[in-house]
C-alpha cells in the first residue's frame, strides 16, 4: 500500500456563534491515497463541507487539535504564500453551486485558475499551452462549442462541467468536489459523473489516475467511489469500502 497523499489526522473544528461554541468536527481522521476516489458520506450538517475545506487548505482546524497533512507536510506549518500555492496547484475545488465568475466567459473561467496560479508573466509565457489544455478539458466535458458563452447563458449541468474543467486546469493532485451533482437532476448528474470517470481513467494505471475526494449525501453516487467514508457526529466512521482498492 502506498503512502497517503492527503490525510486528516484527528482534526477538530469548532465554530463560535456568539458565546456558544458549535463543535462540528470531533477527532475526525481520514486518508486519501494516490489514484483513489474517496466518497465522504453524511447527513446534512454533519460537517462534510467543513472537512473538505480543511483538506483543501481553505480553512484551518482548531489550533493544536489535529492536522491536515499533504505529502507528509502539515498544512499548519505552511506560510500563507505556500498555502495559496497549495490551493492553486495541489488541489482543485468543485462546489455544489458551481461558483463560476459571472463576468468571464466559459474559457476564461477555466483559465482563471491558471491565471491565478502563474501570475501575469508566467501565464503569458504558457498562454498557448494552457489555452489548448483548457479547450481540451472543455471538449472532454462536451462544451467545445460554448467557449465564448457567459455562465448565465448555460444550464446548471453545463456550468458544473465548466467548474470541473476549471478545477483540473492546473492538473491538481487531488480533486475536491463538494456535492457536485447536488443541484442537478439524476440524469444530468450521472452524465457529469460519467465524464469525470472518463477523464480520471485517462491516467491509466490505478495509482496514476486522478485522485478524487467527493462529498455526497447520495449512496447511489457514492457507489462510483473506490472507498466510502462516513461522517457521523463529527467523527469519521470508516470501513464500508465499496470496491477493492487499497
Amino acid at each position: 500500500m502506498t503512502a497517503p497523499i492527503l490525510q486528516a489526522k484527528n482534526v477538530h473544528k469548532t465554530y463560535r456563534l456568539g458565546r456558544v461554541d458549535v463543535p462540528v468536527l470531533h477527532d475526525a481522521s481520514m486518508q486519501v491515497h494516490p489514484g483513489e476516489w474517496v466518497a465522504i458520506l453524511g447527513a446534512s450538517g454533519s460537517g462534510k463541507s467543513t472537512l473538505m475545506h480543511l483538506l483543501g487548505g481553505l480553512d484551518r482546524p482548531d489550533p493544536k487539535k489535529g492536522s491536515v497533512v499533504y505529502e507528509g507536510r502539515d498544512l499548519a506549518q505552511m506560510s500563507a504564500r505556500e498555502l495559496d500555492q497549495y490551493r492553486a496547484s495541489a488541489v482543485g475545488f468543485v462546489f455544489q453551486s458551481y461558483h463560476l465568475l459571472p463576468e468571464l466567459n466559459v474559457l476564461e473561467n477555466v483559465l482563471s485558475g491558471a491565471m491565478v496560479r502563474y501570475g501575469r508573466f508566467g501565464y503569458a509565457a504558457r498562454k498557448s499551452t494552457l489555452r489548448s489544455r483548457g479547450e481540451g478539458l472543455l471538449d472532454a466535458m462536451g462544451l467545445a462549442h460554448r467557449l465564448g458563452h457567459r455562465p448565465v447563458e448555460l444550464s446548471g449541468g453545463e456550468r458544473q462541467r465548466v467548474a470541473i474543467a476549471r478545477s483540473l486546469i492546473n492538473e491538481p493532485a487531488v480533486l475536491l468536489a463538494d456535492e457536485p451533482t447536488g443541484n442537478l437532476d439524476q440524469k444530468t448528474g450521472d452524465a457529469i459523473l460519467d465524464a469525470v470517470e472518463k477523464l480520471r481513467d485517462r491516467g491509466g494505471e490505478d495509482a496514476a489516475k486522478q485522485t478524487i475526494v467527493m462529498v455526497t449525501h447520495s449512496r447511489e453516487v457514492a457507489k462510483r467511489a473506490d472507498r466510502l467514508v462516513e461522517l457521523v457526529d463529527g467523527r469519521v466512521r470508516s470501513g464500508s469500502e465499496a470496491a477493492g482498492v487499497s
Partner: peptide, 16 residues
C-alpha cells in the same frame, strides 16, 4: 463576495 471566495479557492493571495 462570492467571487472573492472563488478566487481564494483558486489560490489567489490576500495581496492579490
Amino acid at each position: 463576495t462570492r467571487d472573492i471566495g472563488i478566487l481564494r479557492s483558486l489560490g489567489a493571495s490576500r495581496a492579490g
